[in-house]
Amino acid sequence: MERYEIRLSGSGGQGLILAGKILAEAAAIYEGLNAVQTQSYGPEARGGASKAEVVISDGEIEYPKAIELDLLLALTQESCLKYSSDLKKGGILIIDSSFVKELPKGDFRIYSAPINEIAVDKVGKAVVTNIVALGILTKISKVISEDSVKKAILARVPKGTEELNMKAFDEGFKAGEELLS
């Protein structure tokens, strides 16, 4: 696979950096690809703009940051408007429909789902919004297998939260299926 660039964006505290690490580990450890994950955040631990980037390739990854996005996840209106112009032609934009009301224009495919609502209503905890997003992203992008992402989630999340996180992933994955059908 040639270089595939993913950016996960939203605000600080939404677990995007963890989600980025999980994606990178899924690709590098469980799929045998190369992956690098970088992050960018403001000085504050909560709130503020936050993004995590994952670059996946079967070759060497020299430049570690994303330049032309294959996939953008935007959980906030601000991040959606700020970053959608970095998407490459025909790229994928996944947005949280509860927060992103103004849709950007461009030559890309938009997938809209109430990601945070799914976490709260169907899984029962807002804290797993990032994992729900991973489920949707996995289904829509098809870059990494469902199995690898699940393994990477289980290796990362705190003990005792495995079931919760698997449910979150499955709900996201299901939402992704609906978006594609």
């Binding site: 980025g20 690490k21 990178a24 590098a28 190369n34 992956a35 690098v36 994950q37 970088t38 992050q39 990854i61 570690p64 940051k65």
Partner: peptide
């Protein structure tokens, strides 16, 4: 900072 915070193999 890039090297410090880049996760890779």
């Amino acid at each position: 900072e890039i090297v410090g915070h880049t996760t890779e193999k």
